[in-house]
């Protein structure tokens, strides 16, 4: 499936490393791009490409925050509430945001568009409150945010959807 879908990307990835196994992380990102999250069939395909046991691939998926093995909203809104952001009101920001959007942390909007997640430091502490939106293997920063600005963004995303 990946092999048909991304022949060029895969070739480039393999060219990068002297040892096949190193390709597992970029390949997992491809799988996430393809299906939004990582399913067993892609783990199996990757395992075959790299001559690994599928369990070895799964073990990598399970380790990293940005690989997801379960379906969620199209956009994962990942709000940092770590110490530096919290000192600048991130906890309150997240709380109000949840209230406005009408879901709790970890939940997904009924239209399946947005999942709100609470994450650790994103390296934007000077721009708190902030979040990033993860979509498959893509990431977009949204910094110096307010609840209103965020709701406008959400509205825009909803529009784009229709």
């Amino acid at each position: 499936m990946l092999a048909e879908k991304y022949p060029e990307e895969i070739k480039a990835i393999f060219a990068k490393y002297p040892v096949k196994r190193s390709a597992v992380m970029p390949l997992l990102y491809l799988a996430q791009r393809a299906q939004g999250y990582i399913q067993k069939d892609s783990m199996q395909e990757i395992a075959q490409m790299l001559e690994l046991d599928v369990t070895e691939v799964a073990a990598v998926v399970g380790f990293y925050n940005m690989y997801h093995d379960e379906k969620a909203g199209k956009y994962r809104m990942q709000v940092c509430t770590d110490l530096p952001c919290a000192l600048r009101g991130a906890d309150e920001f997240l709380a109000q945001l949840c209230e406005q959007i009408g879901i709790k942390v970890g939940e997904t909007t009924p239209d399946g568009l947005i999942t709100i997640e609470e994450v650790k430091c994103l390296g934007g502490c000077n721009h708190a409150p902030l979040f990033q939106i993860q979509e498959g293997d893509q990431v977009a920063f949204h910094e110096n945010m307010t609840v209103d600005k965020t709701m406008e963004l959400v509205a825009a995303l909803r529009k784009a959807q229709e």
Partner: peptide
């Protein structure tokens, strides 16, 4: 090489493991 979210991968030997395609 792009990581995938793990503070520990800043520790140099964990980083190497990660770069080698492991946990």
């Amino acid at each position: 090489h792009l990581g995938a979210g793990a503070y520990i991968c800043g520790e140099e030997t964990a980083l190497l493991e990660s770069l080698e395609g492991k946990r």
